[in-house]
């Protein structure tokens, strides 16, 4: 009887150890401290590509009730299926921060990822961070943007690309400027890109691109503009990749 029990325990142990290797549970961390709030430090609102890591890691910070950073608090990251974190969970460092590299899922669109920690009462405190992933069409749009649009529509300059925005008498809208661009319909944007500013009674400094870019190129640009809008563009209701 005793032998049978030992054998039974052994088999169960073997089986469960086999199983546990298969299902990747986030490691349970031994938190040495607890915070009261979690805030985003950097890495939100990035524009990445499906399945690929974002350029910058996501950094979150755990604070106590008085707003001071807490070291040694356990932070867990989670997101839609396909979103992966490296590491998925960690203890905050001496400055109260956790850094995780994020790869977005396989679907183009907006992603909400969350970082959570437990406060002293054991309650879950979490923060939602938004990222966007570009799919085929938006990627094409992003490439065309970098080739044709960015020099006037992006105020940032780099040594290799000096922004032309300040040289224009009417300042163009950066494509992330959702407040303005979200109000325009797809048809308006297509008309504006194809026929230039005067098509919508706007400045002629925006030239017509309809004789240079194809219709699918212009549709791709609109898809890109919609994908990077901040606040997000909500046409037929915003769809988040579901858990």
């Amino acid at each position: 009887m005793k032998r049978a029990l030992i054998a039974y325990c052994g088999i169960t142990l073997l089986l469960t150890s086999g199983c546990s290797r298969k299902s990747k549970q986030p490691p349970q961390l031994q938190a040495t401290a607890k915070g009261a709030a979690i805030v985003e430090s950097s890495g939100g609102k990035q524009i990445g590509y499906i399945g690929l890591p974002l350029d910058q890691p996501v950094v979150v910070q755990v604070n106590d009730a008085s707003g001071a950073a807490v070291a040694g608090a356990a932070v867990y990251f989670s997101g839609a299926p396909g979103v992966s974190f490296e590491p998925p969970a960690a203890l905050t460092d001496s400055s109260g921060q956790v850094t995780s590299a994020v790869s977005l899922g396989q679907q183009a669109g907006r992603y909400k990822i969350s970082a959570s920690t437990r406060d002293a009462s054991g309650k879950n405190v979490e923060i939602a961070i938004e990222e966007a992933a570009l799919g085929y069409q938006q990627t094409l749009g992003a490439q065309l943007n970098a080739q044709y649009c960015i020099r006037c529509h992006d105020p940032e300059s780099s040594p290799l690309r000096v922004s032309n925005m300040d040289n224009l008498s009417v300042k163009p809208h950066p494509f992330t400027e959702g407040e303005t661009l979200n109000k325009m319909t797809d048809a308006d944007l297509i008309a504006l890109i194809s026929h230039g500013g005067p098509a919508l009674n706007k400045s002629a400094e925006m030239p017509p691109w309809g004789y240079t870019l194809s219709k699918s190129d212009i549709a791709a640009l609109v898809a890109y503009i919609r994908a990077v809008a901040d606040p997000p563009y909500e046409a037929g209701g915003l769809v988040y990749a579901q858990k």
Binding site: Y49, I50, G51, L52, Y136, T139, L140, Q143, Q147, D217
Partner: peptide, 19 residues
């Protein structure tokens, strides 16, 4: 996996494509 999906395009498109 999605991160390699452009390899599909590369089977026929040997030229440099914007997309």
């Amino acid at each position: 996996r999605a991160k390699y999906i452009e390899s599909g395009c590369g089977q026929c498109h040997l030229e440099k494509q914007t997309a």
